[in-house]
Amino acid sequence: MNIFRFAGDMTHLISVLVLLLKIYATKSCSGISLKTQELYALVFLARYLDLFTDFISVYNTVMKIVFIMSSLSIVWCMRMHPMVRRSYDKELDTFRHYFLIAGCLLGALLVHEKFTFQEIFWAFSLYLEAVAILPQLVLLQRSGNVDNLTGQYVFFLGAYRALYILNWIYRYFTEKHFGRWISCISGLVQTALYGDFFYYYFISWKNNAKLQLPA
């Protein structure tokens, strides 16, 4: 464990807590893409298949459970909770995310570390996480003004993977057998997709103005 990875995990945890706060405090999920939340639930379920078979550490197991439970509960809330589901921007959240799932599954079948069930789902989860934010970014552009908590949620979600890139650089230089090209390349693509969001987020923070993404 290094400081970059720990900071990345904490930033990821903060993004989840900010989203839970927004939904429970405002009893609303306006501006949140259900499709991105479903993709993230799939990412965690596909990546943490080894939850019960490989014990790494208490921290690792606890965080995996937190991420799985929180992503599933957010999806459940947005679909089933009587008050929250009413505020879902159904007509704006129209990204065809099934194509993302199919594309990543195909990609994982073609490019993986080893042709085993667990490795293929692991690669699938990394490719899917790289593009999972797309429906959310499209929704932000369509819904015009972005409320603070939603903006902070997306910001922390993007920042966590950027910190993981620093972690991979650190591990590359400090560990002999460190070659995780699938993680690194997926992580770079993922962080790049946040590029323009980060730019407009910084502008809004500098001008102390409302976050506005150009349509």
């Binding site: 790494i56 080893k114 993981y164 070659g179």
Partner: peptide, 10 residues
């Protein structure tokens, strides 16, 4: 030989 990917990251 290269270790199988250590899945120690989240």
């Amino acid at each position: 030989d290269q270790l199988a990917n250590p899945k120690d990251e989240l």
